[in-house]
């Protein structure tokens, strides 16, 4: 735990800088209260709130990502033992990766990386 003291101090210092900027704005800014505006839409008032159900067309990419991403959990510890375990570790990890890359190729054919 001792080791995190520097990082915590840095976090504190950043918070001080951010608060300092806001304080500078409050003391030297033109107006303390923010301007309330309609969302800017090129010169006409918007009809609706923008925060509505947003249909992301790339949602199939998220699923490929989530599955692929699990592999990273193994890969970081793997880097530490490659030299020690030897060729078996490399073969094993790359079997793992090649299977995933095949899945990515399949996903590419299915158009998962496009705004379908």
């Amino acid at each position: 735990m001792e080791s995190y003291s520097g990082a915590l101090a840095l976090l504190l210092a950043v918070v001080v800088v951010v608060l300092g900027l806001y304080a500078a704005h409050l003391s030297a800014g033109l107006a303390r209260t923010p301007l309330t505006s309609l969302p800017y839409n090129g010169g006409v008032a918007p009809k609706e709130y923008a925060v509505s159900r947003f249909h992301a067309r790339w949602y199939s990419m998220t699923m490929v990502f989530l599955a692929f991403d699990i592999e990273m959990l193994f890969m970081y510890p793997w880097t530490l033992v490659v030299a020690q375990v030897g060729a078996a570790a490399v073969v094993e990890m790359f079997v793992f990766l090649v299977v995933l890359v095949l899945a990515v190729v399949y996903a590419w054919r299915e158009g998962a990386f496009r705004w379908a």
């Binding site: 006409v44 009809k47 923008a50 249909h55």
Partner: peptide, 12 residues
């Protein structure tokens, strides 16, 4: 799903 009506322009 929800649709959003957006007017592009006149000033962009």
């Amino acid at each position: 799903l929800d649709i959003l009506h957006l007017q592009l322009g006149p000033f962009l």
